[in-house]
């Protein structure tokens, strides 16, 4: 917002000063230029004839995907159950590890701001930076292919997520309630249990269910690198180009994800 003075001395209103105006335009120009340059880079690495062929390819793909091979579904119930188990057990494991980490990381509950907090924050960031698929890739090498690697991959990725959101919630609690409980002569663990836990309980429930919902989605693809679940069947079907089977898998995933999303929305609604 700027009030300028015109040549004849009368005041004039502009949204920005000319200099700020120029900066904003330069910013937009820079952003567009960067995007175009980046696109150029991608374009150089793209075989465009393939792309022009994409509509035909897409139509062809869809043609081959339909009708879905429903009979294949009977072989999918076990992998689907495995997928849900991976997500659920992985989330539970992540909660068990992540909750103590959150209390160690929050600056109002950490036992030591100088040593413990930075170490825990680093663990949280490392866990969050690495996608569960990459965790799975590593764990399959260590633990061998199968559902255990999947559970651990889900858990390792979720620890950081849960701990980060939870420690932020702990840092936002009302300090006077903590003060009041401290003033009754409560010990530190009692203050934690009576003043802090009740305040973060809704956030905790919401975060856990939210992550479980995300994990259902993630668990569906971990099989691509051999970490168990329905992704293994997907990988196998794609490898032999059995597209009608892939469609069946997609439909099952879609159904599972919708149910889990509905469930998680219900639980989150109930606790708030």
């Amino acid at each position: 917002m700027a009030i300028l003075t015109r040549a004849d001395g009368t005041p004039d209103w502009r949204r920005r000063t000319p200099k700020a105006d120029l900066l904003v335009w330069a910013g937009w120009f820079g952003a567009v230029a960067l995007t175009v340059a980046c696109f150029q880079f991608i374009s150089d690495r793209t075989i465009w004839p393939f792309v022009w062929d994409a509509p035909a390819q897409g139509a062809d793909l869809i043609g081959r995907m339909f009708p879905p091979r429903w009979s294949y579904a009977s072989q999918l119930w076990k992998p689907l159950l495995d997928t849900i188990n991976m997500a659920t057990i992985g989330t539970a494991l992540a909660i068990v590890i992540g909750v103590p980490l959150a209390f160690l990381a929050a600056h109002n509950t950490t036992p030591s701001r100088l040593v413990v907090r930075p170490v825990v924050l680093f663990i949280i960031v490392a866990s969050r930076s690495i996608n569960s698929l990459i965790w799975a890739l590593i764990l399959v090498i260590i633990l061998g292919p199968g559902i255990l690697a999947g559970i651990m991959a889900i858990a390792l990725r979720s620890v950081g997520f849960i701990a980060k959101l939870l420690y932020e919630a702990i840092e936002e609690i009302d300090a006077t309630q903590v003060e009041a409980v401290t003033a009754t002569g409560a010990s530190r663990p009692q203050v934690l249990g009576w003043a802090i836990v009740p305040q973060v309980m809704p956030a905790f429930a919401g975060i856990s269910v939210f992550r479980w919902d995300i994990n259902i989605r993630e668990a569906t693809v971990l099989g691509l690198v051999g970490a168990g679940g329905i992704g293994m069947q997907m990988q196998a079907s794609i490898n032999v180009l059995a597209w009608p089977q892939v469609t069946t898998i997609f439909v099952l995933i879609l159904g599972t994800v919708l149910v889990s999303e509905w469930l998680s929305a219900r639980v989150r609604h109930a606790v708030i």
Binding site: T46, A54, Q57
Partner: peptide, 9 residues
């Protein structure tokens, strides 16, 4: 990938 081929696009 199935539609436009391998690569960043």
């Amino acid at each position: 990938v199935a539609m436009v081929g391998f690569g960043p696009l």
